[in-house]
């Protein structure tokens, strides 16, 4: 099994940290992982994206031209990455940041209202965990328990009290994706 994922949105939306938690979850599940960010000033306000690969085999290139799954959080990223999803692959997007819906017919497209839901839950910071929950519902590449272990690894100890909130957000994401 190899899953090649691009996560793309605005800087500050938690794109890189979502990728990091996914990568750590893969590590907890005993997989080979790579996490390659588009680094630099774009992290601060511009568009941000990260390529995450989880595999049972040694990973060759951390940089790819096509993906099994794209998680898209704004229009610029949709314009850039919709065409890079492999035929038969998966595209997940939050309509909050998207004005023109994806149009491809040869891929599976899922919508997740994560921004609105995170505000309803009074937990806007758990936005990216709602998205991650949605991804895991559609593509169960790692087990929820390993995501929680991954969260423990990425969050400093003083923030471990936030883990239940993140777990709730993950589960909410699994519910609302459609």
């Amino acid at each position: 099994m190899t899953e090649e994922i691009i996560i793309a949105g605005f800087g500050g939306q938690g794109v890189l940290s979502m990728g990091k938690i996914l990568a750590y979850s893969g590590l907890m599940q005993g997989k080979e992982v790579s996490w390659m960010p588009a680094y630099g000033p774009e992290q601060r306000g511009g568009t941000a994206n990260v390529t995450v690969i989880l595999s049972d085999e040694r990973i060759s290139s951390p940089i790819l031209n096509s993906y099994d799954t794209a998680i898209i959080l704004n229009q610029q990223s949709l314009d850039k990455f919709e065409k890079t999803v492999k035929p038969g692959g998966t595209l997940i997007y939050d309509p909050y940041g998207v004005t023109k819906e994806p149009t491809r017919k040869d891929i599976k497209i899922y919508k997740i209202n994560a921004m609105d839901t995170s505000i309803e839950m009074n937990a806007p910071k758990s936005f990216n965990m709602i998205i991650l929950g949605g991804l895991l519902k559609i593509r169960p590449i790692v087990d929820l328990e390993n995501v929680i272990l991954g969260l423990k690894k990425t969050l400093p100890e003083r923030h471990h009290k936030l883990i239940p909130m993140n777990e709730a957000a993950l589960k909410k994401g699994m519910e609302i994706i459609g």
């Binding site: 996490w35 680094y39 951390p62 940089i63």
Partner: peptide
């Protein structure tokens, strides 16, 4: 280079 410096792996 920037790829090997910035990427995360096991």
């Amino acid at each position: 280079d920037g790829v090997i410096g910035q990427m995360m792996e096991k």
